[in-house]
Design a protein around this nucleic acid. Structure first.
Lengths: 142, 142
DNA sequence: AAGCCAGTTGCGAATGGATCGCATCTGGCT
DNA sequence: AGCCAGATGCGATCCATTCGCAACTGGCTT
């Protein structure tokens, strides 16, 4: 994956939009984020980005992640019992299954559930700003 | 509410089952928990319980809450951006709406959603151990 | 091409919720 | 009444995350 593939570019543009400089550190982090197919936590992102920019600090990782999140191009997920995990938000909204034995995070989306949620909020006189649906699961035996 | 109303008793029995002593501190906390109709956090529970047992420490509150949670008679909810909140688990399972402007926590249950969740996990070869569904909402204008 | 300076970095300290270690106390048994 | 495993309160510790600050630098300006 090159430094100017579409996904990296999208993140870069989001940072520009946020009015911040594209530094070596941030460029590295953007690449790492764009490449990530999993749901890494901040420390793991730092580890990966340090391969490109040795010495890159965890503070910078968090600062950049916060900026990207504010621009809506990445999402922060606070699953139970672990540090926050991050993923690029290019895909449509989805919810998560977390294998409690392995930590594996999977994604799913169900429009029927989405609709029911909206109905429930509506009936109570509210509108949903965002929601969180996490299924903590275990592989079926047999 | 007296010290031996049914709800307090249920909590007390859970602690006995856990093989721990019913101390003044714990008795106070159990009453406070049994009386709570909201979703208080640990510090708030300490505040309420201190009215009955001055000097009751936050450590004791957390230790007791952890024991009660392990027995399944209370539930711990980690909503976004706030300390954990607790509630007695006598009612059937339910999910939550959180008013992001006021912090008000409401409960709901929808069997259709429950069923859909189970189907989704099933289809992927998993069984749900527990789940978390939180709707972060805002009062509708108009 | 060199200068400038607001924005950025890395470090270490601070924060906040939750847990732990330990010396002292006490519930509830004998 | 006496005993002692278990409980308490205090302060220290943990962990993820944020903050303060002095030093550094991206990238515009001249």
């Amino acid at each position: 994956m090159s430094i100017d593939d579409p996904r990296t570019r999208k993140l870069t543009e989001a940072l520009r939009r946020a009015g911040v400089r594209i530094t070596r550190q941030r460029a590295a982090l953007l690449r790492v984020l764009a490449e990530a197919e999993d749901h890494p936590e901040a420390a793991e992102l730092q580890r990966r980005a340090e391969a490109l920019v040795p010495g890159l600090s965890l503070s910078t990782v968090y600062r950049t992640l916060t900026a990207l999140e504010a621009q809506g191009v990445i999402q922060r997920h606070q699953f139970e019992g672990t540090p926050a995990r991050f993923e690029h938000a290019e895909a449509a909204h989805h919810d998560h299954l977390i294998d409690i034995d392995t930590g594996l995070v999977m994604e799913f989306r169900d429009d029927r559930i989405e609709r029911l949620q909206a109905e429930i909020a509506e009936a109570l006189g509210y509108e949903i700003v965002h929601h969180r649906l996490e299924l903590y699961v275990r592989r079926k035996t047999g």
